[in-house]
């Protein structure tokens, strides 16, 4: 299929493994899925310490279940990426370990305190879910199918995050103060989740042209702010004066003042050059290397897997 045909036909769940997709499409889709899958893994890495640090048995169970779900999402997304025939899952996981795999800006920062957990578990997950819901309409069917299951599960994550925030916001003064401090620190990063502002009227990128994604970052950021700013206020959080966010006359369109955000940091992160993020990449890489011997033993055993029994049985 040539690229013009792809663009002409691009629509929700239009292409699948049986289609002969052009290289440009396969590479763009791989890049997007690999980034998404990597983000699930590195998000799980960031949240994992809070399984141990949860202050109740139910929270501990929930955090464990959430981190488990995220690894499961990585599993689904790497498969949807593999189906494009560009890279195997092992190659993508190795690239992540080498520092060549890219992932979401928010997962490059350290998270050390319980009061920070809703910043990821509510705001960042909420932002991710906004984007993911639109990806159910992706033109790459394996991507859309992965989104069906991921969106089904994500509602638990966002509500769990909000529940933690509610508990802190209605807790002691100290808890309220720690929550506000965490919010002040994370808010600019959350605003950068959807990347730099697009030119709303003219910008069309390739992924949109071929239907891999259906909404611009600006539209998503705006929808996110419309839903989540009132939530933050509801829990008594003060929105920091900077970065400035302005609404239009109807109060429906949010404009983020780009100059108030640290784009040098953002682009350093995008290149995997931010120190905290590098620590996390390396920490995961070391842990991955330490169990390479187990993966080797599984690969050797593959010879005894499917197919080995094919000659037996049947009729």
């Amino acid at each position: 299929m040539d690229i013009e045909t792809v663009k002409a036909r691009a629509g929700p769940r239009e292409f699948g493994r049986a289609d002969d997709m052009p290289e440009e499409y396969r590479e763009a889709a791989t890049r997007m899925l690999q980034f998404h899958a990597n983000s699930e893994i590195m998000g799980a890495y960031l949240e994992k310490p809070f399984i141990r640090q949860s202050p109740s048995v139910d929270r501990k169970l929930a955090f464990s279940a959430k981190v488990q779900d995220e690894i499961g999402h990585g599993q689904l997304l790497y498969r949807a990426a593999e189906a494009l025939g560009v890279k195997t899952r092992e190659e993508m996981l190795d690239e992540l370990a080498r520092g060549d795999g890219k992932f979401l800006n928010c997962f490059h920062y350290e998270m050390t305190d319980w009061a920070e957990t809703p910043m990821i578990a509510f705001f960042v997950d909420g932002a991710a879910m906004k984007r993911q819901a639109t990806l159910k309409q992706s033109s790459w069917t394996p991507y859309a199918h992965a989104m069906d299951k991921i969106c089904f599960e994500e509602g638990f994550h966002v509500k769990h995050g909000e529940d933690i925030m509610r508990e802190l916001a209605t807790g002691s003064r100290k808890e309220q103060r720690l929550l506000q401090e965490a919010f002040d620190e994370w808010w600019p990063r959350i605003l950068q989740f959807f990347g730099p502002t697009d030119d709303r009227s003219t910008h069309h990128d390739f992924a949109a042209d071929v239907g891999l994604k259906t909404m611009t970052n600006d539209e998503l950021r705006n929808q996110f702010l419309n839903a989540y700013v009132p939530k933050a206020r509801k829990y008594g959080l003060e929105i920091p004066d900077e970065p400035r966010i302005r609404t239009d006359e109807d109060g429906e369109y949010y404009e983020v003042v780009e100059a108030d955000l640290d784009w040098d940091e953002f682009f350093a992160i995008a290149k995997n050059e931010y120190p905290e993020g590098l620590d996390q990449i390396d920490g995961r890489a070391t842990a991955r290397e330490a169990v390479a011997w187990v993966r080797d033993s599984l690969t050797e055993a593959d010879a005894g897997g499917p197919g080995a029994t094919a000659s037996a049985g049947g009729d």
Binding site: A133, F156, V158, E162, A227
Partner: peptide
Amino acid sequence: ATAYNVDASFAQEVADSE
């Protein structure tokens, strides 16, 4: 999601998931 006593209706995708 149903175990958490917070309102999901503020975001359609969260409500759908629930």
